[in-house]
């Protein structure tokens, strides 16, 4: 079997007195670059650096890639304590699949668990070109004309918002919708792809502000997930976001705000269900106002439909 090397990097701090580890010790975990030109079995080094004045004992390092990517071994234990100022590097193998066309973001995580604490380090590698804007991610038709209802399929059962009922609320293609202090442009034309079913798409978006707002609605009762924002300085932030079901769910579910409420909906057989309201919501996550947003990654949840994004 191939030897997987574990190397302790000695430093000038060898004479630091040994004291018991404490939970608040600063420990850094870094992950080496992963060869993403698969299919390949890639070698990855995880380095744990003890920046504290105490020894790290009973160190176990766990490494993981994207879901479904096999790692060997999943955990490595380090027999000897890591002295203050020293680093230990442990090696893993990971099965990297064929690189996908388009834009991908691969996140790798390493966890260093030791006596009295645990530290997680991550590495994100991007490849390809992201979608130019949210519209490029549109993959669903949510709004149809009552005269041509079969064009729509918001809920995967052939039902959709009625363009005529939305117009009664002054919501038409190109019109402005305001919510949570943000201004959105309602998509269109009617009967064309007008929203993104969230599937982890990443698209370019530039701006600065205190929060990122999304306009959308839910198909199903669990239309929520993690939206991630990438700043131009390479850092990122993320937050959970969700929309209530377009009907039959509390309008405040997932912390959302009701924005548009229409009467009835289009079904494959025509306009119907006038006894119910079909709704559009807004929700947001906080941003660092000092940083410039560069990319946005939608959650991966097939029930979550996004009509627009805006910074407020």
């Amino acid at each position: 079997m191939k030897k997987l090397a574990v190397v302790v990097a000695l430093t000038a701090a060898l004479l630091v007195p040994q004291v018991p580890a404490a939970a608040a010790e600063p420990v850094e975990v870094t992950i080496s670059e992963v060869d993403l030109a698969g299919p390949v079995i890639a070698s990855v080094d995880v380095t744990v650096t003890n920046k504290s004045a105490a020894r790290l004992s009973k160190l176990a390092v766990t490494f993981a890639g994207p879901v479904g990517w096999t790692v060997y071994p999943e955990t490595r234990t380090v027999k000897d304590a890591v002295k203050p100022g020293e680093s230990v590097t442990v090696a893993f193998q990971i099965r990297v699949p064929e690189q996908r066309p388009g834009f991908t973001i691969r996140t790798f995580t390493a966890t260093a668990a030791y006596s009295g604490g645990e530290v997680v380090g991550t590495r994100t590698q991007k490849s390809g070109t992201p979608l130019p804007n949210l519209a490029a991610a549109f993959n669903n038709v949510a709004v149809s004309n009552e005269s041509d209802p079969t064009k729509g399929n918001f809920d995967n059962s052939g039902n959709s918002f009625s363009a005529q009922r939305l117009a009664e609320k002054d919501v038409t293609p190109g019109s402005t919708v305001t919510a949570l202090g943000a201004t959105f442009t309602w998509p269109g034309p009617v009967g064309t792809k007008d929203n993104a079913v969230a599937a982890g798409q990443t698209f370019a978006y530039s701006g600065k502000g205190a929060k990122l707002a999304l306009l959308g609605s839910g198909a199903g009762y669990a239309a929520a997930g993690l939206v991630k924002v990438w700043y131009s300085d390479g850092t990122s932030t993320s937050g959970s976001i969700g929309f209530p079901n377009w009907s039959f769910q509390d309008a405040g579910a997932h912390g959302a705000t009701l924005v548009i409420s229409t009467t009835g909906r289009n079904t494959p057989a025509g306009y119907a269900n006038a006894e119910y309201q079909y709704r559009v919501f807004a929700n947001s996550i906080p941003l660092d106002p000092a940083k410039t947003v560069e990319l946005i990654t939608l959650p991966a949840n097939g029930g979550l439909h996004v009509f627009g994004v805006a910074i407020a």
């Binding site: 574990v6 999943e74 955990t75 234990t77 380090v78 442990v90």
Partner: peptide, 10 residues
């Protein structure tokens, strides 16, 4: 030093 670390598949 390699002998100081052990791996577990899972």
């Amino acid at each position: 030093l390699g002998a100081a670390a052990t791996g577990t598949a899972s």
